[in-house]
Structure formats: C-alpha cells, structure tokens
Amino acid sequence: MSAYAIELIDVHAAYGGIEVLHGVDLVVPEGALVAMLGPNGAGKSTTLKAIDGRLTPTGGCVHIAGRHMNGASTKQLARAGVCSIPEGRGIFPNLTVEENLRMLTQLHADLPMSEVAERTYARFPILGQRHTQLAGTLSGGEQQMLAMSRALVSDPSVLLVDEPSMGLAPRIVAEVYDVLRQLAAEGITMLLVEQFAQMALSIADYAAVMIQGQIVTFAEPADLGDVAGAYLGASA
C-alpha cells in the first residue's frame, strides 16, 4: 500500500478546449496536512476538482490510497472516504441546518442522526440554536461551520478543503482554522487550498506552491524561505 494518501502524477485537466492543469505532480503523505498555495487562477481549485471527481483529468494519474481513481465519480470517491468541502461553503441553502446534517447520514447509513447532531452542536453550539433555520439564511461564518461539520462527523480518509477563509471575518477564520487544526491533530489527511498563505502555513506540514497549472515548489513551511513571498507576494 502506498504511503501517500493522495498522489498526482503528471495530471492534466481542461475546461472545454482550454487546458488549466499542465502536468501537476503532488503527493500528500498519509496523515499530513498539505497547504496548496498560489495566486488566483493558478489551478488550485481545479486540482481539487480533479481529485474529488468533479472534473475528469485529460491526462496523468490520480491515486487515492494507492488506487488509480481517474474517471471515478464524486459519489464513488465520497464512498471511498474522500470528503470535499468546495469553495462557496458546500451546503444546501434550501434545507434547514438539521436537514443538512441529515444529508451526512446519506453517505454513512450506520451513523445515527443523533450522533451527527451531538458532535456538530458540541463543536458549533450556534448551529444547535439554529437547527430549524434554512442554511441559506445563516451568516457566512455559520455556513462555513455547517460545511465543516461534514468533516467533523464523517471521519474521512482524505479531506479536501477549498478556500475556507473566503469572505469571512478574521475571528471566524480563526475558528474555522481551529477546527482544521483539530482534524489534523486527529491524523486526518488533508489537502487545503488557500489563497492567503499565512494562516494555512501555520497549520500545514507541507506546502505546495502552484503557478500557472503546475506545482513549482513542495517543501515544509519552514523551508519555503523566500519562495512563498516571491510567488505569492505580500499576502504570504
């Protein structure tokens, strides 16, 4: 069995006729948190889509836990333990908070709703207070908490998180990162895409810098040195 939870080998992906990923090579070791950084349009979110099945790669290999997964559907990958929290929250806005949580039991039929609710409301009490409210009417931070609850209760083998800080107040971002830190401490393998590097680097084991559809640097955060600053500007 591979020591890598995720392994991308020369992955190419395109929207229509326009190629966005030009041979991405990336590994995420078992139990590690890898932060993928890069400017807008670098292909970070597209890489996540190629991993979680939302986009079929046009070339290369996607390996999850050593298994070749090119062309697998999002449903198959979800059942294989890949939990993806996409950009823009990843919730069902026309369902209530409780119904959103109930959706988690679609994937894990053996997981009782009471346990899902208990674990979620223990970590995010505000969601407990708003369990009958439509998710689309929650604040941005609350919506992100609801999205994060998927990772909290589903014990994924691989967690993919896309831009969790987008549009959130600094206090809420800190809270979201607390949850990610906790999940990382529990040994969940994580690939975190973030445009603003500082916060991501503070919890990451490794950082991958992506520019124009390719990984240009892969190192531990301390070893990034000036690379991050050179590629990512002041935000790094």
């Binding site: 939302r54 979800a78 679609q106």
Partner: peptide, 25 residues
C-alpha cells in the same frame, strides 16, 4: 421532510455535485 431520500430530493436542486459528494446519485 422526514425521510432521507426525500430530503435528498429537495437538496439535489441546490447543488448536484455536493449531493454526489454526499454519496447520493
């Protein structure tokens, strides 16, 4: 409102891909 498949049917219109990520077709 009370069955998992019924709730999923209401949710699918919000985001089909997310529904797929939740293991439903």
């Amino acid at each position: 409102f009370n069955t998992r498949i019924g709730i999923a049917m209401r949710g699918v219109v919000d985001d089909r891909q997310l529904m797929s990520m939740n293991g439903r077709s």
